Amino acid sequence: MESLLKKVDLLYPEMVGWRRHLHQHPELSFQEKETASFVASHLREWGLEVVTGVGGNGVVGRLKGSGGEGPTIALRADMDALPIQDEKNCEFASKVKGVMHACGHDAHTSTLLGVAKLMAEHREQLKGMVVFLFQHAEELTPGGAYSMIEDGALEGVDYVYGIHLWTPFPVGKAYSKPGPMMAAADEFEIVVKGKGGHGGLPHETIDSIAIASHLVVNLQTIVSRTVDPTQPCVVSVGSFHSGTSFNVIAEKASLSGTVRTFDPELRMEVKQRLESIVEQTCRMYGADFSIDYKLGYPPVVNDAGEADRFYRAAAKVGEYETSPLIMAGEDFAYYLHQRKGCFMFVGAGNPELGIVYPHHHPKFDIDESAMATAAKLFISMVVDCQNEWNADKC
C-alpha cells in the first residue's frame, strides 16, 4: 500500500490538469453529459468496465482486482456545478457564463479519476472489486444518488465511501465521525396572497409584504422557542420576492428557505410547526397562502465500524480529527441507507494562498494539494477494508 500511496504524488500534476479542465467547462445538475463523457473515456482507456447513463448522467466503472478474493467497495465522486458566475482571476476560471464549480466537485471527480488510474495500473494489489461511482446532480434535489441506486449502481457492493473537499477545514487534514454527521436538507416555498392596491391607501389592501415580513420573524421562533436547545436545528429564509413599484402595495409575496435537522422526529415536528405558523399568521391578517414543503436529502449517518476504519486509514495518510456536525446536506446519505460506509472530509482551505471563500461563493477555490490527500485516503480505506475482509475469511 505504501508504494501505491507514494505514486499518488507522481500522478498529482495530471489530477490538477483534469481538475482545471473540468473547472473551465462546468455543467449544471442533470446536464453533465460532457463531464460524463470525459470520465467514461478515461475509465475505458484504463481498462475498466464502464456503464454510462446510470440513473441519468451517472457513470459507473468497475475494476476487478487480480490479487485474490475480497469485498466489493464503491467509491463515489459528484460531477455537477452550480448556477454561479465565476469571479476568480485565474487562468482556469469557468468559460461558461453563469456556471461554475463552486463546491469542489471538479476536484472530487479528478481525485477519483486518479484513484481509478492508479488502481488499474496496480490491480494485482487489489483483492475483490472496486466500483467507481461518478454521480450527477448532487446539488439539486431529488439528486443523482437515489436514481443511480435505483438503476443498480450498488448492485453487489459491500461497502461505500465518499470524500468531500472542504475549505472551512485546513488543507490536508481529514475529518469524519461515527453516526450522524451531515444534516437532512429540506426546502420550503411560501406564497402569501393578499390584496394589492395604492401605496397611499393601505387600509384598502391586504399587504402581502408586511405579512411575509412577519413570517420571516415568526419562523425564527421555531428554533429559538420550540426546539430543544440541545438539538441541532436551522430554519433559514433565503429569498424574499415581492412588489414592482414604490407606490404599489403588492398582492403577492414569496419566501423560500431551508430547514436542517438530524433527528427524524424533530424533522417532521419542524415541518408541522412551520406550516402552522404560516397558516395562523396569514389568517390573522386576512391573507391566503400556499406552502410547498419538500423533504430533501436525509441526514448522512456513518456506520460506526466504518468510522473506526476511517481513523485507522487516515492515520496512515496524515493528520485527522473527529468531525463536528455539519449543517450542510449531502445525497451521499442515500448510499449509506443501503450499504455500510463512511463519508469523510478533507480540508482544502489555505489562507496563505487566499483560499478563504466559502462553498457556493463566486470566488470559491481549493488548495489543489487536498486532492492528493483525498486520493490517499480513498486508497487507504480500500486497502484496510480488503485486509480486514481477508482476515475474517481466514
Rank of each mutant, 00 (worst) to 15 (best):
G194S: 10
V171A: 11
E14P: 01
M182L: 14
I73N: 04
S213A: 12
K6T: 05
E150G: 02
Y311I: 13
K127M: 02
E319S: 10
A77H: 07
D365Q: 08
Q85Y: 01
S245P: 03
D186K: 03
I73Y: 10
A375I: 01
H23Q: 13
V115L: 07
R225K: 15
T141K: 10
A210K: 13
F92A: 01
V99H: 15
E121L: 14
D288P: 09
I211T: 02
S208V: 11
G318D: 05
Y175V: 02
H203P: 01
Q280C: 06
F169C: 07
A315W: 04
L219P: 10
G67W: 00
R312P: 01
A74V: 02
W18I: 06
I190P: 09
D263S: 15
Y175E: 02
K393P: 03
S110T: 10
E204F: 11
S66M: 00
G305H: 11
Y175W: 15
K271G: 04
A77C: 09
G68M: 14
M181F: 03
V54T: 00
H164V: 11
Y146Q: 13
S242N: 13
V216K: 11
D86P: 01
L201K: 12
S224G: 02
A107D: 10
A314F: 06
K193T: 15
E279C: 00
Y146W: 08
T111E: 02
Q386S: 04
Q125A: 15
H108T: 07
G58V: 05
Q85G: 00
G55Y: 04
L11Q: 11
P178A: 12
A174Q: 00
V99W: 08
L154P: 13
L201D: 13
R225I: 14
L5A: 12
V130C: 08
A81I: 06
Y320S: 08
A375P: 03
L154S: 15
D303R: 05
D392P: 00
G53W: 14
L215C: 13
H361K: 01
G156D: 07
S29W: 01
R76T: 08
L28F: 03
L11V: 09
E368C: 09
F30G: 00
E155H: 08
Q220P: 07
G143W: 07
T244C: 04
P264E: 06
M327L: 15
G286E: 09
V157Y: 02
Q125T: 14
E319N: 04
R20H: 15
H23T: 09
F364S: 01
M371C: 07
F169D: 13
A348N: 00
K7A: 12
I355A: 05
L295C: 10
C385A: 07
E265G: 11
T52Q: 14
F345C: 03
V99S: 09
V301K: 09
M129K: 12
K117V: 12
V227D: 08
A184E: 04
L4C: 14
G200H: 08
Q220M: 02
L118I: 15
M100G: 04
G354A: 02
V50R: 05
E187P: 00
G341R: 12
V99T: 14
V383I: 14
V59I: 02
